[in-house]
Design a protein around this nucleic acid. Structure first.
Lengths: 236, 236
DNA sequence: CGAACTGTTGACCGTCGTCAAGATCTGTGG
DNA sequence: CCACAGATCTTGACGACGGTCAACAGTTCG
């Protein structure tokens, strides 16, 4: 874990070298296997985490078992950190989707760092603010758009965040089950399956080993944007 | 605008007197009439606002005209401030529901204040973090619960935030149109009207001059919590 | 090789969005 | 104070979107 690595993280951007040394001094690094539960919703020994590499899924479930995927965490993202400032309980579950390594800080350590280096706190406001805007956008989407379009948006968002160009088209870099897609788009496993199948039939994407490869971005974007629903892609 | 007032605001909590003087020095106060547009979605001359008294509705609309109410702002709440850190455009509209007075700071001034007094930035992280959690809770609600329960939750949330006990029951302190209720709960004007009417018929609440008075909190809570939908309150 | 997980598809039908018509309320100008 | 226009609310009718259940096919892994 070098200062260089650290200064590339959005949370620690713009800090002088001395500050980075402070940050390093109180950091704890850990590694996880795939499919490992990093923390549980409701747990109280909260820390502020930054993912160094790998992928993590943050998901939240209600008392009735209904579940949503809150977001996917990739290299450089912070996670589990907001709870330090609110009720000091993780508001969601975190599971690794791949092998992963992270660095974390105790609540006390992070607060001290912020007090000594205000830029860290300002960075945090920016990061959390962006997520708030995303969340509100998602609220509007759920309240006003239908399932097919929400799935299209969800895929496009993922592609933008974690897409990579390959010979097979734009591929989402980690395995996604139908249930994951459903929990991201706010629909059911069944509807998600139907929608993705119909798109596969239309030749716009393929799934190989749980990894979704989009071949025709433009069609996806059309569904995401068009006012009128498409006719080809509706339910059989 | 006194230091005392200032130190009661969540954003400036825990600051030494000297810091409060700094804050005051760069503040600008304004007053608005009822039904005044404080800022528009997309506008770029952003400032950080704190409402001193009155009520403001923050709402967001998509390119298709679909609208949601993001939140209601009451005395002491900050608003329009997150955009300072992200894309420097207001992400929503702000309208006064009553006469109102606010204080605001320029982006530059707020950043300077945060740099000089890290506690302000830490307070901001806490505030924005709470809103993020609320937004995510709302996402789950929209994705998993049906309209009637969402309306019940919306009213309960409003009562908790801005309810007051009167002889007529618990009253929401500002006028709410059916359309507002719909935009909060993520449903349509028609469904909201039907649901509220059915509750009026059941004697659980009344609307007088756009102000909703809940007489039977417990029934509302039952609808909000129950796993199985009620039978009396479903659509006619 | 069987158990557990994942994905697909059909059938059914309830919730709730949409449209239309009318009632009621509110504010403005004569 | 009345008249009238515009906003707001209520209610009915209709039907489609999509949630739910069931059955089964493929995969994965101990």
């Amino acid at each position: 874990m070098s200062r260089q690595t650290l200064s590339n993280l959005e949370l620690f951007r713009g800090l002088p070298t001395a500050a980075l040394d402070d940050v390093l001094a109180s950091a704890t690094a850990r590694s996880f296997a795939r499919d490992f539960r990093v923390f549980n919703q409701g747990e109280t020994r909260v820390r502020a985490h930054v993912l160094i590499n790998g992928w993590i899924r943050i998901s939240q479930s209600g008392s009735d078992g209904a579940q949503i995927v809150v977001r996917f965490i990739g290299p450089g993202d912070i996670f589990g950190a907001i709870s330090l400032f609110t009720d000091r309980r993780y508001p969601a579950d975190a599971d690794t989707l791949t092998e992963a390594t992270e660095v974390s800080w105790s609540d006390r350590a992070l607060l001290d760092l912020m007090n000594n280096h205000p830029q860290i706190a300002i960075n945090a406001v920016r990061i959390v603010g962006q997520r708030l805007q995303e969340a509100q956008h998602r609220v509007r989407e759920l309240a006003t758009q239908r399932a097919e379009r929400r799935v299209a948006h969800a895929l496009l968002r993922l592609l933008r965040q974690v897409g990579t160009m390959t010979s097979r088209g734009f591929v989402i870099r980690f395995p996604l089950r139908r249930k994951d897609v459903a929990d991201i788009a706010g629909t059911t496993l069944y509807s998600a399956s139907r929608i993705l199948s119909s798109w596969e039939r239309a030749g716009w994407l393929k799934t190989l080993d749980r990894r979704i490869a989009v071949e025709s971005l433009s069609e996806l974007m059309r569904i995401a944007e068009d006012e009128s629903g498409s006719d080809i892609t509706t339910f059989p």
